[in-house]
Design a protein around this nucleic acid. Structure first.
Length: 267
DNA sequence: ATGTCCACCTGCTGGC
DNA sequence: TGCCAGCAGGTGGACA
């Protein structure tokens, strides 16, 4: 389930494979991802040089020398293989680059998508302009988070999953961050902010927790060990990993998604 | 405006 | 052993 750390790791790999190279051939093996690929998608890319591969929240943005942008989202199951041995089922789009690298986009569930934006268009593209701050960026701090949570009557879990509050968190890392910050996912978001709008202590802890879980996850991306790398996610019935906490991890459903938390130490 | 729910899609799991 | 219902979740739109 690609969230910010997985997308960032993908960005770094794509950046190495594609930046400075031209698209020599683009093969569309399946036209319909989440959105149908635009008409002439392959032809518009072929011959273009990649200036950089950037990321905004969970979006990948390939900057082309023409100023156009290739906007991509991994959805639920999307991922890229660089130098695939051979094409496999669900390899929907293949980029052949002038440096000899071949990049295949594989996405069984097809929740991912690719879009081509004209120069300057990305600056007003709805999906991008609505995003909250980058959690690892400078503008994300206690004041910014407090402002986004103030007056929100919904749960902390739902609020943090909202990409307008902070960009790039998904179900898994919201669960992990709330446990680290000792905050209940059921708590009303606005209770972290004083009536005058100032962040309570918990907001500072939440900012640190979000940054911490994301940074650690990015660091461990390249080790794709098997097993569940998370402390809380998908650990219903296990003992709370916090030192000295006697709680057991519980699973509840919020907004149709699984939430895992420790009812003893998360308040 | 705000909050909640569902559709989109396929692979995997667990129960019988 | 095999079948199949149910679950997983990012985004965006529908609806209360």
């Amino acid at each position: 389930m690609p969230e910010l750390p997985e997308v960032e790791y993908t960005r770094r790999r794509l950046n190495r494979a594609m930046t400075g190279a031209r698209f020599t051939r683009v093969i569309v093996r399946r036209q319909t991802l989440r959105h149908p690929l635009p008409a002439g998608f392959a032809a518009r890319l072929e011959g273009q040089t990649v200036r950089a591969v950037e990321r905004r929240a969970k979006y990948l943005i390939v900057e082309l020398a023409s100023g156009e942008r290739l906007l991509m989202h991994l959805g639920m199951s999307g991922w890229f293989r660089v130098m695939p041995g051979q094409l496999e089922p669900h390899d929907h789009v293949v980029f052949e680059m002038s440096n000899g690298k071949i990049v295949a986009f594989n996405d069984p569930r097809r929740f991912g998508f690719m879009q081509l934006l004209n120069a300057g268009e990305h600056a007003r593209h709805r999906s991008l302009t609505r995003l909250g701050p980058e959690p690892l960026g400078r503008t994300f701090d206690a004041a910014a988070l407090a402002a986004a949570l103030a007056r929100r009557r919904t749960s902390l879990k739902a609020a943090l999953s909202d990409q307008r509050v902070v960009g790039g968190l998904g179900n898994v890392y919201v669960v992990e961050a709330l446990h680290r910050a000792r905050l209940s996912p059921k708590r009303r978001a606005s209770t972290l902010v004083t009536s005058s709008g100032a962040p309570r202590e918990a907001v500072y802890e939440l900012v640190d927790a979000i940054r911490g879980v994301l940074k650690e996850a990015i660091r461990r991306q390249r080790r794709t060990g098997d097993g569940n790398p998370f402390l809380i996610y998908d650990r219903e019935g296990e003992k709370c990993p916090r030192r000295g906490c006697p709680g057991m991890i519980r699973r509840i459903t919020q907004a149709g998604r699984s939430t895992y938390y420790c009812p003893v130490c998360q308040r």
